[in-house]
Design a protein around this nucleic acid. Sequence first.
DNA 1: GACTCGAGTGTATGCGCATACATTGTGGGA
DNA 2: TCCCACAATGTATGCGCATACACTCGAGTC
Lengths: 361, 361
Amino acid sequence: MAKAPTVYDVAERSGVSIATVSRVLRSPAAVREHTRERVLAAVTELGYVPSAAARGLAARRTNVIGLFFPGHDETVPDQPVDSARGDTVPIVDDDSDTASDTENLYFDEVLRGAEIEAWRRGFALMVAAGRGSSREALVTDIAGRVDGLAVLARTVPDELLAYVARRIPVVILAGAQRADDFDHVSASNGPGMRTLANYVLQDHGVHDVVYIAGPTDSPDDAERLTGFRNALADSGVAERNVRILRSDFTRDGGRATAARILAAERPRAILCSNDETALGVLDVLEQRGIRVPEDVLVTGFDGITAGRHSRPKLTTVHQPMVELGRAAVHAITARLDDPNLEPQAFTLPVEVVLRESCPRV
Amino acid sequence: MAKAPTVYDVAERSGVSIATVSRVLRSPAAVREHTRERVLAAVTELGYVPSAAARGLAARRTNVIGLFFPGHDETVPDQPVDSARGDTVPIVDDDSDTASDTENLYFDEVLRGAEIEAWRRGFALMVAAGRGSSREALVTDIAGRVDGLAVLARTVPDELLAYVARRIPVVILAGAQRADDFDHVSASNGPGMRTLANYVLQDHGVHDVVYIAGPTDSPDDAERLTGFRNALADSGVAERNVRILRSDFTRDGGRATAARILAAERPRAILCSNDETALGVLDVLEQRGIRVPEDVLVTGFDGITAGRHSRPKLTTVHQPMVELGRAAVHAITARLDDPNLEPQAFTLPVEVVLRESCPRV
DNA sequence: GACTCGAGTGTATGCGCATACATTGTGGGA
DNA sequence: TCCCACAATGTATGCGCATACACTCGAGTC
């Protein structure tokens, strides 16, 4: 790596001042064509690459947006990376680990959306995982590098967000719409669940229903539960005639809860507040030879990929994850354009996706 | 957003010089504890967040690593992001699009590995998708922001990489080990396929085999094909006794190729150079009532998640994608530490994963 | 008691760029 | 013909930080 050329080198080589070089790069229209060509030629010859640090310093903005997502360091070994030794290739049996492909996929799509939208608006995207230790250091480190920050809900403690939000716009992604000063982007959890539940209660005419809620600290879950209750009201079903249980959003939790449910009288439908729970329920039902959807209807929420491949395929409410990422970036840029905006809440539309576990009637 | 405080503000407030403030943040041990505490108190009170741009400029390094991956703008609409209008939730039928979860997942895991390793080494991670248009602008834009760049193979034209590589280390991820000046990180494609093919040829004793290769411009594919040929030699099978066809790495391509294969005499095994192709083959076999593995063995390569959920589950060679990401960052940091290193090639170990489509004998 | 030495801190400078302002050149209107 | 407006370019400055170097001061050293 030779020492990187600077505007000064380019200016000297093309016989202009550094201001002109800068203008060629930032506002080409302000420079005569002849001059511009000479400068660009020098740029290419020297292999000039503008320093984003210097530009950021001078322009007082970095044109970078940060995206914070939940951490995962537990799962990766601390060992150094090694090359293969020799050509030995082990042969192992099925490695199915259903745990790993849920949140990942969710995040992957959010990232995709954020990246696309950021690029369209002329920003680069920086990513970081929220980690258990020294989270604070990470957050301020990232905060110093970006013009705005999107944070997956509950990845970062509130007081830390507040600290960062004193300097740059912060948007909270896919959590609750809380009454705080942050911008929020999320999906219509309540209406989604309400529509799906009404489909079961009315179109399928099934009133004998169990609802499996998620952890109490999840704001999404609270909204979904409310949606379910609204559906009960819509359909004229008294809440005391249905069971509402709590699980923990995991597949294992779904299995355990399904076992509890089946210990009593078997319901005609089990509505789950997320897909993983529903997959766990399906596991238990299949294992006991209970047919889905003939004996029991099952539904989830989220639209994770695994639900498309389950047996039977899972009916669910699909969240627009790519759009969530895009909306987050949109919210940040909107606030950068006008810092005095009132705190905003974007609620993105969802879709009920009917598959085998609760088919179209 | 109030104007961000700087080292000068912190220095003034805590009654020290800016040099001391800087030292408290960068090398705390060099400052007396009493002083340090005063400075840190001022930092907190003012909500000081160091400017990465200024630091990067002064220190001549950004502590950011860039990750370039294949683009995907085609799939996302250009419309602005809207909030939900009212609470209308559409109800749609199954939306299965098998296309979307392959490369994504692959990239997601690479990203995960890169992010983890970067963080461990004190770097932030910036991501960008290689896009059709104005790729050049994007690349140099990112290049100016980072200390090193990891690029998914064939995302960026070679001459552009060469341009960037004049300034910062560039590592090519998961492509061929080409004879160029870049560092390379990839998986043992050849040995992986060789081992899997030998398992079919020897352990299963199946010699009546068709091999479906991928596109000719894929270096990974070339390595896999070589691995297959080595296995033929290992097992004493003449190449003229097997068929080698070419497809395009897609599920649709797999379907079409399977149809071609079945037009002639049906083989006992079909080895595919990637998982998607294999999934397409499975589609056709199931549709024609041909049993897998009883009638035909099928294998893939990559270890994508969809292969764990297929019917039957797909035997494959699993690439360590998280490790690829980590290794890429490792390679970059190694070169930053010692720019005079010879070009390196990391080849990461793979695993043959036996599932239903070609079970353990 | 003068001297050395090192720990702790301050002063001054430059990193590479954007940009306000100054300067020069050019054509059109009076 | 002279002046002015505007286009094109140059000059000078500061963005916020890291760091080389200078400086101070107190504890040893002899």
